[in-house]
Simulated assay, not measured.
Amino acid sequence: MRVRSGGHDFEGVSYVSIIESPFIVLDLTNLRSISVNINDNSAWVQVGATLGELYHRIAEKSKVHGFPAGICPIVGVGGHITGGGYGILLRKYGLAADNVIDAHIVDVNGRVLDRAAMGEDLFWAIRGVTKTLDTKLLHRWQQVADKLDENLLTRVLMQVTNTSKADFVREPIPEFTLEELRKRISEEDDPLIVWTAYGGMMNRIPEYETLFPHRKGTMYKFHYFTNWPKGDKNVAKHMSWIRSLYN
């Protein structure tokens, strides 16, 4: 069985299977109710709602409130939070999962459980898990990005995608390795690499607080993609490139 809230997965794991046998997709996209309570700074959001819908509902109630989650408006809230939910406010407020204070789930017996009823163990478990690049500048960025003021998030884009991989970096990548990386991305037709600085609140939340472990000591997230147009005859080549880069 596959569970889908928004279907926004780079490799389609919410609606495909590598096992050659029948399976079902539990589609939650119609569960998209959102109730915002500005008075106590909270909101109840069903898993099928998208981030864009959540942000819109918050904006209807307040011009100064927000929620620390991703920048893509079509991502489903359920999958986003259960994966941790990182976004551009993570250095100030942590991940989306860090800001979940209660949840409702349905267990195998059909019971609806809130945080108190499901227990802290289960509540913990459902909250995540360019070609002209100046490598000298990037080498320096690695050393300061996670130490900047927490009100500032910086990203480096190494240039939409069909597959992606990610790493969490704890030590600066040597400059000669960055030079090699620049050569490698020039081999692919449409690559994109996103460097997202951590630090700030991410350093202050213990790694055991949620299922998402990449906390103190993580300098930045290294997220790389490749894209190809529909009908491309070289899919195997693109997949081989990103897998070899990841390895």
Rank of each mutant, 00 (worst) to 15 (best):
W195V: 00
K92M: 08
S33Q: 12
H104N: 10
V25M: 11
K216Y: 10
G78Y: 05
S5F: 01
I19S: 13
R57V: 15
R32G: 07
A166C: 04
L152A: 05
W141K: 04
N203G: 08
K237H: 09
Y220F: 15
A43V: 08
I19R: 11
G76W: 00
Y15M: 12
K233I: 14
A103Q: 07
L245T: 01
Y220L: 03
E187Y: 09
T210W: 02
G217D: 01
R184E: 00
P174W: 00
W228Y: 15
V77E: 09
W228L: 11
W241M: 14
S244W: 05
T135H: 12
A116E: 11
A59V: 08
G78N: 09
G6T: 02
R2N: 07
V100Q: 03
L89Q: 09
D102I: 03
V194R: 01
N30I: 02
L133S: 03
S33K: 06
R170Y: 03
K147C: 05
K147F: 11
H223M: 08
G87I: 02
Q159Y: 14
L178I: 00
K92D: 08
A236M: 14
T196C: 05
G6V: 00
G217C: 12
M219V: 02
E209H: 02
G200Q: 10
V100F: 04
G79V: 00
N162Y: 11
W241L: 15
W124Y: 06
E207Y: 07
T130G: 10
G12Q: 12
R2F: 01
T50W: 01
K63N: 14
F176W: 08
E187I: 05
R111D: 15
G94Q: 06
K216F: 05
Y246S: 15
P172W: 07
G128Q: 00
D134Q: 02
L95V: 04
I126K: 12
I88L: 12
D102N: 12
V112P: 14
T161S: 15
L138M: 05
Y55V: 07
F222M: 03
W195P: 02
V75N: 03
N109C: 15
V25P: 11
D102G: 11
N247D: 05
L95E: 02
D149Q: 12
W44I: 04
L152Y: 09
I58L: 10
G76R: 00
G12W: 11
G84W: 07
G79W: 01
S5H: 06
L89D: 07
L95G: 03
R155V: 06
N39H: 15
K147W: 09
A117E: 11
A116H: 05
E150W: 09
G78A: 10
G87H: 04
R184A: 03
G94M: 04
K183T: 03
D232V: 12
T82M: 00
A166L: 03
N247Q: 09
E11L: 08
H139I: 00
E171T: 00
K221S: 05
H104F: 14
Y246Q: 13
V129T: 04
I205E: 13
H104A: 10
L178A: 04
L54D: 13
V75P: 14
D107S: 13
I105E: 12
D121Y: 01
M158E: 06
K165T: 01
V77R: 01
S17L: 13
D107A: 11
E207W: 12
A59Y: 09
Y246P: 01
N151P: 10
H104G: 03
M219W: 08
P206F: 07
K92L: 13
